[in-house]
Amino acid sequence: MTALWGSAVATFAQNLYSTNNGETSFFSETPVENITAVNKTGQAILNTANGDLVVQMNIKQFDFPNKLMQEHFNENYMESDKYPKAVFKGKLNETVDFSKNGTFDVSATGDFTVHGVTKKRTIKGKLTVNQGKIDLVTDFDVALTDHNIEVPKIVFVKIAQVIKVKNKYSLAPYVAKK
């Protein structure tokens, strides 16, 4: 039974591509101040058999050049102890031939959860198949109000209402951790 289960995972795993060091950065642009941070421990996994795609990251791993801002981001805006992760669980809308090298415009539709609030989103991006590796690149916007992220009135630091998010994930065939 266990053996069968194991083989099920093994068969299944052949179609899986993943990474533990994807890069997600965001950018808040206002006339007064620009704020940016990067998370280099984003995780993604793609099932090439059915297009299932999951991307997730720990909010606390966003690295800011200004540590005080990082503290505010975690404590006041994202409430990272309460909502530690940002997650996208979705499916590619296009059928891609993963056996050939090439770059494809793709989109994925699914549940996008940030700050404990889940929104149905369709996110567009580029998918590149190259020598058995899959690169995913996508830029999209996140509106703070969509995720109940409150920016108090009395802040000296100006924060944009819509945050630009950029992602660069390079997926390799999935190998289970021993």
């Binding site: 069968l4 289960w5 795609l53 669980k89």
Partner: peptide, 23 residues
């Protein structure tokens, strides 16, 4: 169970796999 397992692999399972891999 095997059939069930292969069908039931869904995004939630993928998410669990990622959790296991998380540093």
């Amino acid at each position: 169970f095997l059939t069930l397992a292969s069908c039931a692999w869904a995004q939630d399972d993928l998410s669990k796999l990622l959790d296991q891999e998380a540093p």
